[in-house]
Simulated assay, not measured.
Amino acid sequence: MKCPKCQSNRTIKNGHRRGKQCYKCHDCGRQYVESPVIRSYPLEVKQLCLKMYLNGMGLRGIERVTEIHHTTIMDWVRQAGLKLPDAPEESEIPEITEIDELQTFIGNKRNKIWVWTIVNYWKPGIILWTVGDRSSSSFHTLWLIIKCWHSFCYVTDGWKVYPGFIAPEDHLVCKTYMTRVEGENTRLRHYLARLHRKTLCYSKSLDMLKCPIRFLLHYLKFHTVETIF
């Protein structure tokens, strides 16, 4: 029997698994069974798990409820996030742009990272975001897009990076006028367990921080996961 990975004929029998003969390849070390059965979860179960995830439950919490391994659910979230753009397309250019940063961490609490979020003062939803440190280099990638909008005003919390990009006459530093962006950041923390404050859930990689954010923004705008799977 040929190895399914390298197509080598140098294989040996290697015990049994669930009543089926197992084989091992001498060349690549792959272990496999004869005539494997591909198992998959029903689409309805997958969508239910994803909705639970997008409504504040952590991966291991969903595992305890559904008895589906958390790595399987994590793969579903990653697959969905990789299919989606960073944010749903927005046709209206904001007259007033609000900018803020949301702090989280990757791997451990010493490895801090920020989610920079951009919103339209007059409309709900995050229209632009990026992940990085709190330096000017991280904001620069956003500013290249934002400056083309020629918004009437840019509202921030006064972080020292902003004056290096925004002209003083266009820059309003006022927490009172940041209710929209603060609210959107609160929604991110509310709906994603990995962004909760004082939580045991956390992101182990940058990829697994970005994919859930993309997926959540799609879900909050369209209120469905059916179009993804």
Rank of each mutant, 00 (worst) to 15 (best):
I127F: 00
T227Q: 13
S205T: 15
I62S: 03
E184L: 09
S35H: 15
N55H: 01
R39Q: 14
P36T: 10
D133W: 01
E98F: 01
L195G: 04
K5F: 05
L217Q: 06
T117N: 15
S138W: 07
Y191F: 15
I93S: 12
C211I: 00
A193G: 02
V119Q: 06
P168Q: 10
P163F: 04
N120Y: 10
L142A: 01
E169P: 00
C3P: 08
V181C: 07
K46N: 03
V225A: 09
T71A: 09
S135I: 05
Y41I: 08
L48Q: 13
V45L: 14
T141E: 11
E182W: 01
A80L: 04
I96E: 07
I38W: 10
T156D: 13
L59M: 09
R39L: 13
H26V: 07
T199Y: 02
I96A: 03
M178R: 15
E169W: 12
M52E: 07
S138D: 02
S135R: 15
H16C: 03
I146M: 05
W149Q: 03
T130S: 13
E90F: 08
G81H: 04
W159Q: 10
L195E: 10
C153N: 05
P212F: 02
Y41P: 02
D27K: 12
L142M: 05
W143G: 01
R197L: 06
P36E: 12
L220S: 06
L195V: 00
M57Q: 10
R197T: 05
T176E: 14
T199G: 08
Y121Q: 13
K2Y: 11
L200V: 06
H16G: 00
F105K: 09
G107D: 02
I99M: 15
G19Q: 01
Q79I: 04
L142Q: 02
Q79C: 09
D157W: 05
D86F: 10
T156A: 09
Y202T: 13
I145H: 06
Q47Y: 00
Q21V: 05
I118Q: 08
R18V: 00
T227C: 10
